[in-house]
Design a protein around this nucleic acid. Structure first.
Length: 226
DNA sequence: CGAATTTGACCAGCGC
DNA sequence: GCGCTGGTCAAATTCG
């Protein structure tokens, strides 16, 4: 069964390195099985399966906070309310995200071609590369008893970390598909442990491991921000 | 026994 | 420059 059955709705944050203008928030209508057109396209770009998208997040503020660096998190918390976040797109409070986008744009193609390197050099390069390249990210919050939502892809856990000011550890997963560099982070909200924050980073280069039918797509739209 | 997960160590980036 | 923090690695451990 779907692990998203208890999910609420339906807001989140994404950033797109190729289309910085699409950094922003989306919001779904709670009664729709799938969000409106604009969101659908973006979700598709991120390969977020409709099954998950329909169950996506319930708190815009917290969706943003979950992926913001600590300092900005504090700024956001102290200066903004949820409603204001809807128009946050180019405000100073989300410079962190714009910074990421800019970094992505300026550091394209900085890795690859390890073939002729020795082991240690390769390792070093890997280590250096691991922070240089920022993939587009998409995060949302879902109410769920289980941490890992069934999104149709196969993930391997590669790390777990206790993050500051939270009692729940953050888990790090990588897509198991060869050559697919998509990662996701999963953590529970400190203020409400029933809520799971999932952040996807990167785009899948393949289809989900179990077939999700191609989408269904209602074409009406409403309640769509960015 | 191979695959997946756990966990401590390491490293880079950021803020002070 | 230094300490703190988040992200990743990889050896050890657990699971199926």
């Amino acid at each position: 069964m779907s692990t998203t059955s208890q999910a609420m709705l339906n807001q989140g944050l994404f950033e797109d390195q190729e289309m910085p203008s699409q950094l922003g928030f989306y919001s779904f209508h709670p009664n729709l099985s799938f969000p409106q057109v604009g969101c659908q396209q973006s979700l598709k770009a991120f390969n977020i399966p409709p099954s998950l998208a329909a169950d996506a997040p319930s708190s815009l503020t917290e969706a943003l906070l979950s992926s913001a660096p600590t300092k900005q998190r504090e700024d956001i918390t102290s200066h903004l309310g949820g409603a204001q976040l809807l128009s946050l797109q180019r405000s100073t409070a989300n410079l962190w995200a714009w910074g990421d986008v800019n970094e992505c744009l300026s550091s394209k193609r900085s890795i690859g071609g390890d073939d002729h390197l020795g082991v240690s050099a390769m390792k070093m390069k890997k280590i250096k590369a691991r922070r240089k390249v920022r993939e587009p990210r998409f995060c949302f919050k879902t109410m769920s008893e289980v941490d890992v939502l069934d999104d149709g892809y196969k993930w391997r856990k590669y790390g777990q970390k206790v993050v500051k000011n939270t009692q729940h550890p953050r888990s790090y997963y990588r897509c198991t598909q060869d050559n697919c560099r998509v990662k996701k982070r999963v953590e529970r909200l400190a203020e409400d442990p029933r809520m799971v924050i999932t952040t996807y980073e990167g785009r899948h280069i393949h289809s989900p491991s179990h077939d999700l039918e191609e989408s269904q797509a209602p074409s009406h739209l409403n309640n769509f921000f960015w």
